[in-house]
């Protein structure tokens, strides 16, 4: 991928690319930002695996905040600055927490799932329930839902991919969502 990908994108295009889960743009952000966060974590009592976990948590925060409009990236530097700051704050929160101290004593590798804000924490629980329920769905349903909600494919594209009519796509998507909802509610 060309290094100047961000130079060719306007502010709106960067935002749109992140919202649409553009793999090229997201990968570049990911690869550019990790070394600096790893260096920070390793310099502050952490290891490579912990750096990866904290970085991925921070990446999700960046992604969600861009989608919500809570953070508007003006360019690649702004994206990297934000990502680094979130990761740094999360790591500092973790290092200050009593859980970190306890885990260090027990040499336990259990890590994270800790958000800085209480609101994020409760949402995280709900997302985990969905994650667990999603793993119980058949592979066709998983593929169908991922294609819609992550890859942002249209009904028409899905109809072509699966060899269905658009009405069948709509019905099957509904059935998959209902199955997923029931699995979550059963928990």
């Amino acid at each position: 991928m060309p290094k100047d990908i961000f130079k060719s994108l306007s502010q709106d295009e960067i935002t749109q690319a992140i919202c649409l889960n553009d793999a090229l743009v997201l990968r570049q952000i990911y690869e550019d930002g990790f070394p600096k966060v790893r260096k920070f974590v390793q310099a502050n009592h952490g290891n490579e695996d912990e750096a990866k976990d904290i970085y991925q948590e921070a990446f999700l925060v960046l992604w969600q905040n861009v989608k919500k409009g809570a953070f508007i990236p003006t360019n690649q530097s702004a994206v990297q600055g934000y990502l680094y700051q979130v990761a740094k704050n999360k790591w500092l929160d973790w290092v200050r927490s009593s859980r970190f101290k306890r885990d260090r004593k027990q040499e336990d590798s259990f890590f994270l799932n800790q958000a800085s804000e209480p609101v994020g924490e409760s949402m995280e629980d709900k997302y985990e329930q969905v994650e667990h329920a999603l793993s119980k769905l058949g592979s066709d349903c998983q593929e169908l839902l991922k294609s819609f909600y992550f890859l942002k494919k249209s009904m028409e594209e899905m109809a072509t991919t699966f060899g269905w009519t658009t009405q069948t796509v709509k019905n099957n998507k509904y059935r998959c969502m209902e199955k997923l909802r029931k699995f979550v509610l059963q928990k």
């Binding site: 889960n21 991925q56 329930q129 969905v130 992550f150």
Partner: peptide, 20 residues
């Protein structure tokens, strides 16, 4: 809304693993 966000998030987490 939570189902949609949850699905997207699971897919994103898996994508981040691939990036890593």
């Amino acid at each position: 809304m939570i189902l949609r966000e949850g699905i997207e998030r699971v897919a994103m987490k898996s994508q981040l693993e691939e990036f890593h």
